[in-house]
Design a binder for these strands. Structure first.
Lengths: 346, 346
DNA sequence: AGTCCGGTCGCAAACGTTTGCGGCGCCAGT
DNA sequence: ACTGGCGCCGCAAACGTTTGCGACCGGACT
């Protein structure tokens, strides 16, 4: 019978092979390549032989011994949301530069998938974890951290655990955006915002509200429409807010998925921006700058968040964890004025 | 001195612990949990004990022994392009369902980064690889495949190697799109397309050209604008094609990044779609359906590509690789009519 | 010349699994 | 009652590293 051997090509060259070729023991070979505990001469000789033979250390074996896989889990809800997308891009690149690889996992904001994901990543012996938590699996995350695997939360906080977290400065961002509109003379400002069960949804609403009240404008609940992060929400909000007699003069759309629906709603009603309505969005996305008119946004600073999250995790991976404090970081938002907001004449 | 032991929490429970608790040898424990070579009774008993103790097998150790890491590399140029995004989402999910994890890597279409990435993934002993190749590292990929690691290319082909590849049916898609416009009575059709060094750029142009010629319409090179996949290209193309006397009556934009620039160009010139110009895009993206008017597209079938790529790789991972044929698969494109194309009166 | 010391190196154990091989006991068949 | 066979299990080797410990060698110092 034809032996149908699995196509395991030429067996990889192992440390033993290198050692044998250099006529030293495996241990000195190991030390020479790790740099250090050998004479300068043998070190260089072995480096040379190793590269000549095309030696590549076996990460699994090394990981088994050193109890570290140089893998980091990266868990997000999806890749469609611009924040998650840049998070994935930036974190991945940052980690790679530091010698780690990112394992990408997508949970669809579903606690069960998240639980399974965390378990699997733990099985893979990831060295660390960056995650946007659903909030329902805090116990598992805390257990991981207790087992020596640093966990950094992003975008959302996991209430109930004391995990290191980096968030957007949503209250301030929403405050600044609303204030900007107020400064332009707007008094009736509609808000389309996320579900109030989420941190960001609540915080953005509260920032909006605070700006209003500080300006001496009453908060009118009928001017806010809350819903999922989806175009449909924006469309529904448009309908609710604009098909009424005392129509607001400005709209603040607090997440970019809804914005698509809002744009369509405005077009359907032939409402001119910014002539008849000022429009301000939260979170920048590639399309906004290319719209006509270009859409002003308060940018939530996704890449800054990503960079900070990666840096914090890396620092703890290097063992400089230090502070048990499990702090919370906030990334400042930034107003980007384009052409979708106009000053209201008095 | 306070021993600052690394916070390696409670040591993980190992197979030895389970075996000891069950008063059997490690080998029977292993076999019992793997299912099979033991009596039904001990199998169930050990399953129970294992879960009670919270045993989780060490993937690294297992991988070292079995020479498989249950990791699969996923290499794309970026996550902004819609095709890559759904590729990442779908592949990740598919692999996970089959017990594999995806390592995400981004190359920015840069051969050097790609080379480094492939090397690292190989070091991590990935079991397989799904990659959109730059085309400059075919040798490395071929070597991987020879070493027993199945490689599947997506979106682009690596010329010069005979790797399994799944592509979009770009010639047919562009043909169908152009034909659709012709069927609506258009004779002068502008084309904004990708660089001619890329497979997709060439193939989409050729499909466009074939449709034209079959309809007896002469191919006019001055009606095509080729450039990078970026909004700027679209804007420049708009300028070149529309600021002339014999302006085309329809525009076929063969990639969605450029489309953003085109939309802005049209808005700047106050050109009404579809009244004054019909617009058709290649590759669907979330925004298109929400535009006003909603933009017709020929959808390149990104998720079908992703699914096929994942399935092909998985099949080979399961050892059913069989055919040495290194075949090439094509995913059919599909015209989605919305509201941006109108029939030309004769 | 003897002692000591610092620098290099090899031996062997360990990391947690999987797996070939052989031993043991039990049941059925003569 | 003895043999054969088969099902279940344990022993130990192996996967490719890292690392503590001890051996060895040379030179410098007393």
């Amino acid at each position: 019978m034809q032996e149908t051997l699995p196509p395991s090509g030429p067996a990889a060259v192992t440390l033993r092979d290198v050692a044998r070729a250099a006529k030293v023991s495996v241990s000195t070979a190991s030390r020479a390549l790790a740099g250090g505990l050998t004479s300068r001469a043998t070190e260089q000789r072995l480096q040379r032989i190793a590269t000549e033979m095309g030696y590549r250390p076996n990460t699994l074996a090394r990981g088994l011994k050193t109890r570290s896989s140089r893998l980091v889990g990266l868990v997000v809800h999806n890749l469609t949301n611009a924040s998650f997308r840049v998070l994935a891009e930036v974190v991945q690149q940052r980690l790679r530069a530091a010698g780690y690889q990112a394992i990408l996992c997508i949970t669809a904001d579903d606690p069960e998938q998240e639980a399974a994901t965390i378990a699997t990543l733990s099985d893979q012996r990831v060295d660390g974890l960056i995650i946007c938590p659903t909030g329902r699996n805090g116990a598992q995350l805390a257990a991981l951290e207790r087992a020596g695997v640093p966990v950094t939360c992003v975008v959302r906080r996991d209430e109930g655990t004391r995990l290191e977290t980096v968030l957007a400065a949503d209250p301030e961002g929403a405050y600044a955006g609303t204030q900007h509109l107020i400064g332009l003379g707007h008094r009736r400002i509609g808000l389309i915002v996320g579900r109030q069960e989420t941190t960001s949804g609540r915080e953005r609403l509260s920032g909006y509200r605070r700006a209003l009240e500080e300006a001496g404008i009453g908060f009118d609940p009928s001017l806010v429409h809350a819903g999922r992060y989806a175009p449909e929400t924006g469309l529904a909000g448009c309908r609710q807010l604009l098909d009424r007699d005392d129509r607001p003069s400005a709209l603040f759309v607090a997440n970019h998925e809804s914005a698509l629906g809002v744009l369509r709603g405005l077009a359907e009603r032939d409402i001119l921006v910014p002539e008849q309505l000022s429009l301000l969005c939260y979170e920048d996305m590639p399309g906004f700058a290319w719209q006509r008119p270009a859409i002003s946004v308060v940018d939530s600073g996704a890449e800054a968040m990503a960079e900070l999250a990666a840096d914090r995790l890396l620092q703890r991976l290097r063992g400089e964890g230090g502070s048990r404090a499990a702090p919370e970081y906030r990334i400042g938002a930034r107003l980007i004025e384009r052409q979708s907001c106009r000053r209201l004449e008095a």
